[in-house]
Design a protein around this nucleic acid. Structure first.
Lengths: 233, 233
DNA sequence: ACAAAAGTGTTTGGTATACACCCATGT
DNA sequence: ACATGGGTGTATACCAAACACTTTTGT
């Protein structure tokens, strides 16, 4: 009752239940032409060996965002990665061991292939979101919510470029959007939108790996995007 | 390091930091023609007497959603209210007493005026989002995020009707959208959209309170909305 | 009669969509 | 020469926005 208003009441804290709080990270990347999620076999019971999202407990001296960034760093060696909170998950039985409240984050990893050696150490691997195995805990729900959040975000802001290498071709960008949105998009319309919105800039590099003719490479430009401030795919 | 993967590892739980987890509720309602938030004076230190969002600690036998619903019920006596999670907030110093991790929810309260007597008991009052006092903790941030979430949601799905009484006039609905979106909308276009999308249905009731002529009253209809499934204001 | 809010269609501009052929190059 | 992916404009449909007057009725 009045307990409803204990929040922040110093001496009252002790009477309240406490929980380990974890972060779970959904790492997205474009891999083998598919939007993929990084899964690693669990190293502990329960479900030892079963592919799982990466998680970690929140330490007393780090914020939720910092915890998520740390977990990501420990696994990949990457910092300066686009991350966004998906939400908090607190079902009673979401962890069979003990009640843990978890905050999910998604991260967008550039497909430069510069993932740290640590990934191999954890036997982590990229799994297409179209071919996910049955996952434990509430990880399927988390991934679903993360995909929803990604869809919504991508249609409003040009965050998808965080999934591309520094330099990329328009065809790569288009494939990325098609994978994220789950539908095919018109080549000419897509290119027009990107160029009109000035969020990418042409470089003098040519990609000759994927075609005989070669494809112009572009770079994302946050600055010129900010000026126009409209984006819609 | 390997600790990153302790998640769910039974015996390992004990070594991890534990935190009280709270929910904070941002109750939105249309009050006095303004989109408003319910604030109540804190009953405990720190900041006793200062207007604040409603919060409560998550008990061991309730989910986050249940905790939020309980806090709302304790304050208003209402159940069956539209609620949505805004996100988790875990800044280190967000609560001066002790580290508390909080999950914010927003709720949409019908402006029927049927708020329970309990509200009076807590000296709670509706404050226009345009005239919020300086709030403590990270409540300003929570409200900002809740408003963002509300904006996005309202433009995609007809959840705003949760803020209107059972029966309402088109003018009321329009005012509501104007307050939420923070801009004026065209009367004819607005009405056309609502009627075309079949998410409201005409009743035979006439509201004579706000005009001499009287205004037709409508009711939200979730069923017929589901059929058309497009909504855009 | 008049004040005050309710109600009602059409025009216009912009944006999203659909669509097909030529280009450059390595083999 | 040909196979492969890269690159380019236009016409159309639809939707959002702008816009002003008539209706009803209590006073």
């Amino acid at each position: 009752m009045d307990e409803t208003f204990d929040l922040g009441a110093g001496s009252y804290y002790s009477v309240h239940d406490r929980y380990p709080v974890s972060v779970d990270c959904i790492l997205f990347s474009l891999h083998g032409g598919e939007l993929s999620v990084l899964l690693a076999p669990r190293k502990f019971e329960p479900h030892r060996g079963v592919p799982s999202l990466m998680g970690g407990f929140v330490k007393h001296d780090e914020t939720l965002d910092e915890a998520a960034a740390r977990v990501l760093w420990e696994l990949t060696g990457l910092d300066d990665v686009y991350m966004e909170q998906v939400g908090a998950f607190g079902a009673l039985d979401r962890d069979p061991g003990e009640r843990v409240i978890s905050v999910a984050y998604f991260a967008l990893i550039k497909s430069d292939g510069v993932i740290d050696a640590r990934v191999g150490k954890y036997d982590a691997e990229w799994v297409s979101v179209g071919r996910l195995p049955e996952l434990k805990f509430d990880h399927p729900l988390m991934i679903e919510r993360a995909l929803d959040a990604l869809h919504r975000k991508v249609a409003r802001e040009p965050v998808a470029f965080n999934l591309l290498p520094e330099l990329f071709t328009l065809t790569q960008a288009q494939m990325l959007y098609e994978r994220i949105l789950g539908r095919s998009v018109d080549k000419r319309n897509f290119r027009r939108q990107l160029l009109d919105n000035k969020c990418i800039e042409l470089t003098d590099k040519i990609d000759k790996l994927n075609s005989r003719r070669g494809a112009a490479m572009y770079r994302f430009n946050r600055e010129s995007y900010k000026e126009t401030l409209k984006f819609k795919i």
